[in-house]
């Protein structure tokens, strides 16, 4: 079976002022459907850059990102946008739209994908129930705690039944107790629904909950371990 995400000799160089920064220096990675991968590394190691490339938010300087068998570099802006509808992003700072309620935030990707209103409502309430936030559906993000916002973000990411979830430091802005609950939720999604999860973190305790840990340093993968404990 073809991997959901595959990167081949991935390079990314960007300019920091006039200084070129080699964020990625040849990353080869394969992620199968149903996997739960944690990408760990210190800040500046290139893990966020890798996430942006896997999420089709950015284009590589060299090498290829293949998502579902499609080489991302061959796609134009519109095709990339359509591809992103099949990727569920969860950002470190949640990135909810402040003026929309929790349920409107979850509904937004469905509206963008052109799903009909009635189906959208059904799906939204189902997702909010899955992340345990049915009661908070009508609240704006500012009225929600960090953990609650994070769960809204996960519900939003799941809305279009993505091929995989991409999480950027999902526990970076929530307390440890909430973080534990979040990990439980992610594992449940992975095990019960078969959602493929790719998560960036610098917290080793969180990373240990994944099936697979990929260590990255200075733009290269330095170690890959399968987590038998799970």
């Amino acid at each position: 079976m073809a991997p959901v995400v595959q990167t081949i000799n991935l390079h990314k160089t960007y300019m920091l002022g006039k200084v070129p920064v080699n964020a990625l220096r040849g990353v080869d990675l394969e992620i199968e459907s149903g996997d739960f991968v944690a990408i760990v590394g210190p800040s500046g190691s290139g893990k966020s850059t890798l996430l942006n490339l896997i999420g089709a938010l950015d284009r590589p300087t060299e090498g290829k990102v293949i998502i579902d068998g499609v080489d991302v570099s061959t796609l134009n802006d519109d095709e990339l946008a359509e591809l992103r509808r099949r990727i569920g992003f969860v950002f470190q700072f949640f990135n909810l739209i402040p003026r929309l309620t929790a349920s409107e935030n979850v509904e937004l990707p469905l509206a963008i994908a052109g799903v009909k209103k009635r189906q959208r409502k059904e799906k939204t309430s189902e997702l909010l129930k899955a992340v345990g936030l049915s009661e908070r559906a009508g609240h704006n993000p500012t009225e929600l705690s960090g953990g609650e916002q994070q769960r809204v973000a996960i519900a939003r990411a799941l809305a279009n039944e993505p091929r995989f979830l991409l999480l950027d430091e999902p526990t970076g802005n929530i307390d440890s107790k909430t973080a534990d609950m979040l990990i439980l939720l992610l594992r449940k999604l992975n095990e019960e629904r078969g959602v493929t999860i790719i998560m960036i973190t610098h917290d080793l305790n969180i990373a240990k909950q994944a099936k697979r840990i990929v260590r990255i340093l200075d733009g290269r993968i330095i170690e890959e371990t399968s987590n038998i404990a799970t």
Binding site: G55, A81, E82, R84, I97, P109, I112, N160
Partner: peptide, 16 residues
């Protein structure tokens, strides 16, 4: 700007 980034990450096309 950030909101536009979010919309694009959720798959919104440029013309939208």
């Amino acid at each position: 700007t950030r909101e536009i980034g979010i919309l694009k990450s959720l798959g919104m096309k440029n013309k939208t």
